[in-house]
């Protein structure tokens, strides 16, 4: 099932469309949320909120403006950041968390049901630390190139291409 196939089902508000949407994206989006919000219950609240928003606002998604996944990704980051702000965190997103997404591995130890069938987490541990930081800030936390450049003390011009190289490593591993 591709996004192009899923979208018409979502617009028709078919029940199976919700199941497909959830199966395809809930894990990815939940990792974004838990990377920003460490409190499990609050993270789950945000996940619910995000899927309700996606379902109810799907008509406002404009295919010519970008990917459906990207649209959902932005909703997810914004909802998580709003949640943090409402809990009294400093309103600068740069102060949100010093942890990167890899810490999620440690947290998940207590969860019995986790499987990493593709050994991706092991691979990530072998990724260059710069790559983990870049992907964490840009993709997971939604930093701009400028913000990432400031945070990592990396020349602005190289942020984009460095990130590209990291993703290429990932794609080589995944063979996509």
């Amino acid at each position: 099932m591709t996004q192009e196939e899923l979208l018409p089902l979502l617009l028709r508000k078919e029940e199976r469309a919700f199941t497909l949407l959830y199966d395809m994206y809930s894990k990815s989006l939940f990792s974004i949320i838990t990377n920003l919000i460490s409190d499990r219950e609050e993270a789950e609240d945000v996940l619910q909120e995000v899927f309700v928003k996606i379902w109810k606002n799907i008509e406002t998604y404009n295919q010519s403006k970008g990917r459906l996944y990207t649209w959902m990704l932005n909703i997810t980051r914004n909802a998580a950041i709003d949640k943090l702000r409402s809990k009294g965190f400093n309103n600068s997103q740069k102060n949100l968390s010093s942890d990167n997404f890899v810490h999620l591995l440690d947290d998940s130890n207590k969860l019995t049901n986790r499987i990493d069938s593709i050994g991706l987490r092991e691979f990530v541990n072998k990724l260059k630390p710069k790559c983990i930081q870049l992907i964490d800030l840009l993709f997971f936390k939604g930093f701009t190139q400028q913000e990432a450049s400031d945070e990592l003390k990396m020349p602005l011009g190289t942020v984009k291409t460095q990130n590209r190289n990291c993703i290429n490593d990932l794609r080589n591993f995944l063979k996509v």
Binding site: K27, S28, S31, V102, L104, N113, R114, D116, L120
Partner: peptide
């Protein structure tokens, strides 16, 4: 990202 998601 999916592989880093805690169990839901």
């Amino acid at each position: 990202s999916s592989s880093f998601s805690p169990f839901i």
